[in-house]
C-alpha cells in the first residue's frame, strides 16, 4: 500500500538521515591565542584508506553532543600519515571561542572526539587558478580558511606570484605568524598590518586596504581572494578596482548563520542563493544584485 502512495510523493527509498555526523579523533590541540585553538582531526572513516576530499575554503559542520553544531572552515588540506602502520588522513580546524559550542570545543583534549558532517559548499577551485598571480587578503579570523587555500598552492610551480596581506586588531591576533615565515621562504610576499599602534610593533598600522595601494599587480593575471569581517569586503573591492582588478577576478568567502549545510534551514539564504551550497566562496560578480551579501 505504501509503495502505491510513494508514487506521487518524492522518492523515499533508502533515505538516510542527513543530520547524522561521523566521529573524528582529535590528534592535536594547539593553543594559538587566548581565543583561538587549532584542532588537528582525523575522521574515523578515513582510517583504513577512505580519502577525505575537499577543496580549500569548504567547511564542515562540527559538533559535540549537548552543544550542537556550527560551521567551521577547513584550515588545512588533508595530510596523509600513519598510525600503527595504517594510513590515515587528518586536517585542521581552527576555532575561536565565541559561544556555546566553540567554548566547549576549547575544553577538548588530544584523543577526544568531535563529530563532523560535510564537507559542504563550494571552495576555491585551485585547478582553475593555475598560472595566476594570487593575492590573499585576510582580516582577523579570515586567515583560517585562507590557510587551507595558501597551503594548497604555496611552493607549487603552477601558480604565479603569491602575495598575502593579513590584518588583525593587535599583533597577537595575527594567527599563524610562524607559518608565514615558512611561506615567505617559499617565495610568498607577506605583508602584515594591525589596526592601531601597539608597543613593539614595527610593521604597518592601518586597515588592510592601506597595504593595497603600494602593491604592483598585473590586472589580467591576478586573482584576489578576500576573507574577513563583512565591513572589509566593500573597501577591499574598491581598493582593488583602483588597481584595475576586475570583479570577476575577486573571490570572497561569506559567513552566515548555518544550521543544516544543505539548503534546508534557510538561515544562510541571500536572495535565491544559499551560502552553504553556492558559497561560501563566491566570485564578486556572482554577488552583483545581492545587496545583503555584505
Amino acid at each position: 500500500m505504501n509503495s502505491l502512495l510513494n508514487q506521487q510523493s518524492p522518492k523515499t527509498d533508502n533515505l538516510v538521515s542527513p543530520y547524522l555526523p561521523s566521529a573524528a579523533t582529535v590528534e592535536r590541540v594547539t593553543k594559538l591565542t587566548e581565543k583561538e585553538r587549532l584542532f588537528t582531526v582525523t575522521p574515523l572513516a578515513a582510517i583504513g584508506g577512505l580519502p577525505v576530499s575537499f577543496d580549500p575554503g569548504q567547511f564542515f559542520m562540527c559538533g559535540l553532543p549537548g552543544y550542537g553544531e556550527a560551521p567551521f572552515s577547513v584550515a588545512s588540506m588533508p595530510v596523509n600519515s600513519h598510525i600503527n602502520g595504517s594510513p590515515k588522513q587528518s586536517f585542521d580546524l581552527c576555532i575561536r571561542a565565541v559561544g556555546n559550542l566553540s567554548n566547549a570545543m576549547h575544553r577538548i583534549k588530544k584523543g577526544d572526539r568531535v563529530y563532523l558532517r560535510g564537507p559542504f559548499g563550494r571552495g576555491f577551485k585551485t585547478d582553475e587558478l593555475k598560472g595566476k598571480d594570487l593575492l590573499f587578503i585576510a582580516g582577523g579570523i579570515g586567515i583560517v580558511p585562507m590557510r587551507s587555500f595558501i597551503k594548497s598552492v604555496a611552493g607549487k610551480d603552477s601558480y604565479g606570484k603569491l602575495t598575502l596581506i593579513c590584518g588583525a586588531k593587535t599583533p597577537e591576533e595575527i594567527l599563524f605568524q610562524g607559518e608565514m615565515d615558512e611561506w615567505k621562504d617559499m617565495g610568498m610576499d607577506v605583508r602584515l598590518t594591525i589596526d592601531k599602534r601597539h608597543p613593539g610593533w614595527k610593521g604597518n598600522v592601518g586597515v588592510v586596504t592601506t597595504l593595497i595601494s603600494s602593491l604592483k599587480l598585473k590586472p589580467d593575471k591576478t586573482v584576489a581572494a578576500i576573507i574577513g569581517p563583512p565591513v572589509m569586503y566593500k573597501f577591499v573591492a574598491l581598493a582593488l578596482r583602483k588597481k584595475l582588478i576586475k570583479d570577476a577576478s575577486m573571490l570572497v568567502s561569506l559567513e552566515r548563520r548555518m544550521k543544516c549545510g544543505f539548503g534546508k534551514c534557510g538561515h544562510c539564504q541571500i536572495n535565491s542563493s544559499y551560502v552553504c551550497q553556492d558559497g561560501p566562496v563566491y566570485r564578486l560578480t556572482d554577488l552583483a544584485g545581492l545587496p545583503e551579501a555584505f
Binding site: 505504501n2 502512495l5 510513494n6 510523493s9 518524492p10 522518492k11 523515499t12 533515505l15 538516510v16 538521515s17 542527513p18 544543505f262 539548503g263 534546508k264 551550497q277
Partner: peptide
C-alpha cells in the same frame, strides 16, 4: 539536493 529524510518519509 540532499534529501531531508524526516520530512520526505512522513510525506510518503
Amino acid at each position: 539536493g540532499t534529501s531531508d529524510a524526516n520530512y520526505l518519509t512522513r510525506r510518503a
